[in-house]
Computed example of a mutant assay.
Amino acid sequence: MAGRVVLHYFNGRGKMESIRWLLTVAEVEFDEVFLTTRAQYEKLLSDGALMFQQVPLVEIDGMKLIQTKAILKYIADKHNLYGKDLKDRVMIDMYSEGLMDLMELIMVLPFTQDVKSKLDNLESKARERYLPVFEKALAGPVYLVGGKLSLADVLLVESTLMLEEKFPAILSGFPNVKAFQGRMVQIPAIKRFLQPGSKRKPQPDDNYVKTVMEVLQFTRANFP
């Protein structure tokens, strides 16, 4: 369909999943082209579609965008999910970049050689560095910034659900964050996204890991 958003990535979460979440909350329909072979990736490279030879790649509004943060900011700004002024936006950016750092710790787990150590590090940082920030920020406000839904809120609910997949009771000591998550999952677009059959991707499995490693030509040695 002309003008429809197209996502080029693997059939899994990775760095594209936050983009899927944000498009869903913005109620923007999108198509997906899944990378399954090295030849597909090399075709994108030869076509000049990947500015820094990286995915995710999002085709939107006649542009081919890469770099996850840039894509998220563009979509958020376009759909009124990026605050009302510069002060709102810098707060949204700080929260969002912290959450993306946290989710990066989760994303690398399937590729790492020392899963137990990485899980312990993830849990420690989540409890001591990241969740306390949001517990404090949500002591009263419904949303993180400016009294309205933003990119930061979308990333927070995504990351808390990812954390609970690894540590089911992790939010027990963070009641404000847990209450926030409960409100967010009742938003109709999010509620649909969490249902079976949506475009939300499951936790990475061996097939996903194998595909990523073959297409990008790296091994677990890249993730000590």
Rank of each mutant, 00 (worst) to 15 (best):
G140D: 09
I170P: 00
G147I: 10
L131C: 14
E97L: 08
L99P: 07
M107R: 15
L86E: 13
E123A: 05
I92F: 01
L99G: 07
L144C: 12
A139T: 11
P110M: 08
V108E: 07
R127W: 03
A152L: 00
F111D: 00
M103Y: 06
D120Q: 14
Y130A: 09
L109R: 10
A169I: 00
V154D: 05
F111E: 12
K125R: 14
E123L: 11
P132N: 06
K125S: 14
F167K: 06
E97K: 08
Y95M: 03
P132D: 01
P132M: 10
E104Y: 14
M162F: 06
I170K: 11
L138F: 11
D120G: 12
L122E: 07
A169D: 13
P168N: 04
L155K: 02
D114F: 15
D101Y: 06
D153S: 09
R129D: 15
L109F: 06
V142G: 04
F174V: 05
V177W: 03
K148F: 00
L161Y: 03
F134E: 00
D93Q: 11
L86K: 15
M107Y: 14
F167T: 05
V133G: 00
D114W: 05
T112Q: 06
D153W: 07
E164F: 00
L144S: 12
K87C: 09
Y143A: 03
Y143M: 07
V133P: 05
L86H: 13
A169G: 05
L163K: 08
G146S: 01
D153Q: 08
F167V: 07
M100H: 08
I106V: 11
N121H: 15
T112S: 11
P132Y: 04
L122M: 14
F134P: 06
A137I: 01
L161V: 09
L163E: 01
A152N: 06
P110K: 02
E128F: 08
Y130T: 14
R89E: 00
V177C: 13
P132H: 01
M91Y: 03
N176D: 01
P141G: 04
L102D: 01
E97C: 10
V133S: 00
P168R: 04
S150R: 03
L138A: 05
L102N: 02
L149Q: 03
V142R: 14
M91G: 08
S172E: 15
V177S: 10
D88K: 09
M100F: 04
S159L: 01
I170N: 05
L105D: 06
R89V: 01
L86W: 12
